[in-house]
Amino acid sequence: MALELDFEKPIIEIEKRIKDLKAISDAGHVDLTEEIALLSSKIEPLKKEIYSNLEPWQVARLARHIDRPSTLEYVKHICGDDFVEMHGDRLFRDDPAIVGGIGVIDGRSVMIVGHQKGCDTQSNIYRNFGMPHPEGYRKALRLMRLAEQFNMPIITFIDTPGAFPGIGAEERGQSEAIAKNLAEMSAIRVPIMCFITGEGGSGGALALGVGDKVFMFEFSIYSVISAEGCAAILWNDPNKAKEAASALKFKSTDLLKAGIIDEILTEPVGGAHRDHKTAAEEIKKCILKYLPSLIAVSADNLIEERYNKFRRIGKFAGEEEQENG
């Protein structure tokens, strides 16, 4: 375990004790099967208890967990060998913070695009911690247009702290790149399914998030600004991140209630970082469940419904009374 979160400590401690007992038992000194069974039986209820009562800022930490599966890992589990990665925006360079390519899911050709974080310091530096430059978004758009040309549904994976704030990113039009994706995705004539798998960080996340169906993993987050950023601006104090995390209502349950996402995907007990394969299967199941019905919709209806899905979002004073009256 590369990273221990404080609220996970009780679980990790029991796991460690089981491991120790097993080592003793395996060495053949004493038979500890009963003790091990007893401890093991405690783990699942404990996990359930801990993970069903997480505070928003704790969920944010899970969403950012370095061991959480990344886009390429999901692709490996979902497509196996049937995936060919594509590179570059054909304009400037290849951005390693966004990956994409063509693949096959259960016999159907698809385009997959997603943010890519690293799994350790070195790979995270290479992936820029999953924070794309404009060329990343332009690569994503190039791939999505290709998908449209070859009539392939698009699957996007969203997991980024946000679009990168840097000199080169501004010089090359970070704003324009994001804006263009939002506009173009709204009218791409093939189905788009979006999966928020970890951190849905603001505009940099939304730039891959305009789809017909938007799903969120249980312990992922999706927010207009990070809790830290919000605390710094509105509270004038970055240490108020916990308060900001609660105020922003960025948990999957909040987003489902607000009508922003279509469904919450259950994570393996203890979080996706504890069981990559099961997490990937959950996504695959979801794709197989919804894709056929999306493919059956005519392209005109598809983009009209997609437009309306986002068109509807907004809350206004006096709305309740007006709607009821």
């Binding site: 506009a183 939304l206 600004i225 922003l248 986002f310 979002i313």
Partner: peptide, 20 residues
């Protein structure tokens, strides 16, 4: 985006861009 309306504000980016 207006932080006080959270994710709803973020979604206005998609909504206005789609309208363009």
């Amino acid at each position: 985006a207006r932080m006080q309306e959270g994710i709803l504000s973020l979604m206005q980016m998609a909504k206005t861009s789609a309208a363009v």
